[in-house]
Structure formats: structure tokens, C-alpha cells
Amino acid sequence: MSRSHQNAWLSVSSVAVGSFGTVLSEFLPIGLLPSISSDLGVRIATAGLMVVVTGLAAAVAAPVVTVATSGLDRRVVLIGLSAVLVVSDVIAATAGAFAVLLAARVLLGVALGGFWAIGAGIAVRLVDASRTIRATSLITAGISIATVVSLPLGAVVAATSTWRLAFVIGAGIGLVALVLQLLTLPAMPAEQRVRPAALTALFGVPRARIGLLVAALLFAAQFAAYTYISPFLHDVAKVDPDVVSVALLVFGVSGVVGNSAAGVTLHRSVSGTLVAGGIALAAAVALLPLVAHLPVAVFVLLVVWGIVWGGLPLGLQTWMVQATPAGSEAGLAMFVTTIQVALAIGSSLGGVAVAAVGIAVDFQLAAVIALLGTGALVWLGVRTAGSARRGAAAADH
């Protein structure tokens, strides 16, 4: 292994740590809302705003940061976003008022949206073309791991310490990412300016439209169910409280495996990976309530679900990069905006379903949404391919 090859993978790893830190900071406080509510003297519903504002800020920041910084060296931008992550978590950890905490969470949203839009597509600048998907899978592994680790880690923090420790942990990881990036990231001069028109122009690209629609539906499906995975295990599956953390850990490890597996399958077929993943996601969440009385079956389906969700975000990002090869950052910016909005909508729909008809029906709803996303990919993909063939035939004549 050459020194330059080693440096390339160290650079990729530094971005992966950054992606892990931003997403962990986003989700870690979810299990701590009662403590935050009590300590800062606000209603728990009000405390929940700290999760909402982060997602909304990320949805806005992704395209704004992409356009505003498109003329800057990407090394400088990524390091700056990691610094914003550290600052936001430090402010949150020391906040004496809820308004200050909300401001910190808005800052986190800026780091989150910018990092997803720029960091997720940076692998092509760091490694050879033949290793781009593998490098991207490492970066998105940070996202997948943070998503699934946040719940059990939050439970540990809530049981053993103050909620402020969650933000100290986030700041610590952000600081590690910042140092690694300072030491390992090479200069990456801006290749082209991203104009605001490039963002809306994506909707004129059939493949990009398909990617955004499918991403919206699959992320909404995922978070309609995933948001309530702990209550499902507690209240529906009647899993022992001590075993719930183990179940969530199993889900997380499965996600890492799925992310690695997707790095292989995507080389063969991006659309095939997404279709198979969408169907498996729908099947897993639909079957869970039906086998809730069978602990072994529940764990098996959690493994399937974790594997699938470990790979789907990487597959969707790969689709968007391929759909907009001349401006992948614009594509990823709109991708981040889309999934953050879909995440909020999915969680909200899930909450309404759980309150009105129960967790089991919520999981069935999530399965239907996942199937809609998969069906849209198949139907629109076939239509687009047919149009392309007809256009080629017309050109030949």
C-alpha cells in the first residue's frame, strides 16, 4: 500500500467521523427530551422542537451552503462545518435557557445539511474512481451507525448522567473529526460554481426526479416506523427492558453489515439494489407486528431491517450522484433537503398513526409507503428507459 493510498483512506475516514458526529448529535437527544423538559422548565412537546428545528435547518442549509461555498476549497468548507458542529454542541451542553439550546440546534442543522450535501459526495475527490463507491460507503457508514447507535446511547446517558453529557459526547466526536480533517484532508479547489438555477434544474432531469421521489418515500417509510421501534419492542413485542438495548444494538450492527454489502451490490446494479432493498424494508416492517409474540422472529426481522437500511441511503446517494454527474453537489444538496423533510413527515405520520390506531398499524403504513417508493422506482424507471429507447430509435430514422 503506497503512502498516498494510505493518506487517501485516512482522509475518507476523517470525513466518515464527521458524518458520524453530525448525525449522532442530531438524534442523540431524542431519548433525553423528558430530562431536558424538566431541567429547562418547558413542556415536553416544546422540548421536541429541538429535534424539529435541526431537521428544518438542515433542509434549508443543504442547498444554501452548497451554493454559497461552491467557490471555496472543499477542505476549508468541511473543516468549517466540523467546527460549527463542535461549537453547536458546546453551546447546547452549557445552555441555561431553552432559547439558547434551540439556537445551538439551528447551528447543528447548518453543519448537518452542509456536511451531508458536500461530505457524502467528496469521495470522488479523495480516491480513485474504482474505489469511489467503497469510499462513499465508509462515509455513509458513519451516518448509518450514528442513526442506530443514538437510541441505545441516549438511553445509557439518560440512566447514568445528565442530558448535557449527550452534547459533550457530540462535541468530542466533532473535535476528533476536526483534528483528523486538519491533518489528513488534501486541498480540494472548487471545480465549478453551483448556481441556484442548478438546484431547480434537477427537476428537469428524469433520473434525478425519480431519485428524489423514491428517496422521499423510502425515508418517510423508514422513520414512520423507526421512530417507534423502542415502543414496539417494549409494548407490542413485550421484550424485556434489558433486552431492548441488545435488540437496538443488533439493529445497528446489521446496518453496518448492510452498508458494506451495498458497496458490493451497487457495483452490479444500483436500481436492483434499491428495488430489492425497498421490498425487503416493506416486508420487514409489515411482518414485525405479525410475529411480535415470537422473540426469535422479531430479532431475525430486525437484522433484515438493519441490513436493508444500512444500504439504502448509500444506494440513493449513488443514484443521485449518477443522475447529476456534472454537478453532484447540487444533486446531493437537494437529496439532503428531500430526506430531511421526508424524515419529519414520516415521523409525524407515524405519530398520528400510533396515537390513533396503534403501533402495529403504523408499521403497516410504513410498509405501504416503502412499497409506493419501490413501485415508483420500477414504474418511472421503465417509463424513462422506454422514452430513451424511443428517442434513440427516432434519431436513427
Rank of each mutant, 00 (worst) to 15 (best):
I210W: 15
A216V: 05
F223E: 00
I210Q: 15
Y228Q: 04
A197K: 13
V243I: 10
K238P: 01
S245N: 08
A221C: 06
V244Y: 06
A215G: 08
L185T: 00
G211D: 07
H234S: 14
R207W: 14
G211H: 11
E191S: 07
T184G: 00
I210K: 15
D240R: 14
L202E: 06
A220L: 09
A201P: 07
A215L: 05
R193Y: 09
P231D: 02
P186I: 01
I229K: 08
V194D: 00
F219R: 02
R193W: 08
A237S: 10
L213I: 13
A190K: 02
A208Q: 12
P241M: 07
P196M: 01
F223C: 01
V244I: 15
G211Y: 14
R195P: 02
S230Y: 14
V214D: 03
D235H: 11
A224L: 12
P206H: 13
A220F: 13
A215E: 05
V214F: 12
P241C: 03
P186R: 01
Q222T: 13
V246P: 00
G211A: 10
F219M: 10
A221I: 07
V205N: 13
A247N: 09
I229M: 06
E191C: 01
G211T: 11
H234N: 09
L199Q: 04
K238F: 12
E191D: 05
V205Y: 15
T227N: 08
A187H: 07
D240F: 11
G204N: 12
L218C: 06
A201N: 08
R195F: 12
P196Q: 01
P206M: 10
S245Q: 09
A187L: 04
P231V: 03
T184Y: 08
L218E: 05
A201T: 13
R195L: 11
L182K: 01
V239M: 15
E191K: 12
A224K: 06
G204S: 14
A201H: 13
P189D: 00
V246F: 10
A225G: 09
A216F: 15
D235F: 05
E191W: 05
E191H: 08
V243D: 05
R195K: 10
V205G: 04
P189G: 00
I229H: 07
R209T: 13
L213K: 09
H234W: 03
V243Q: 13
P189R: 00
Y226R: 06
G211K: 10
Q222E: 07
Y226S: 01
T227V: 08
A237N: 05
R207A: 13
S245F: 06
R209Y: 13
A187V: 07
A221G: 12
A197W: 15
L233K: 07
G204R: 14
L182V: 03
L212R: 11
D240Y: 12
V239Q: 12
A197G: 04
V239W: 09
M188R: 01
M188H: 02
R207H: 15
L213Y: 14
F203L: 12
P241Y: 13
V194M: 06
L199T: 03
A198N: 14
M188W: 02
A190T: 04
G204F: 11
K238H: 14
V243T: 15
I229Y: 09
V236P: 04
G211E: 02
P186W: 01
G211P: 05
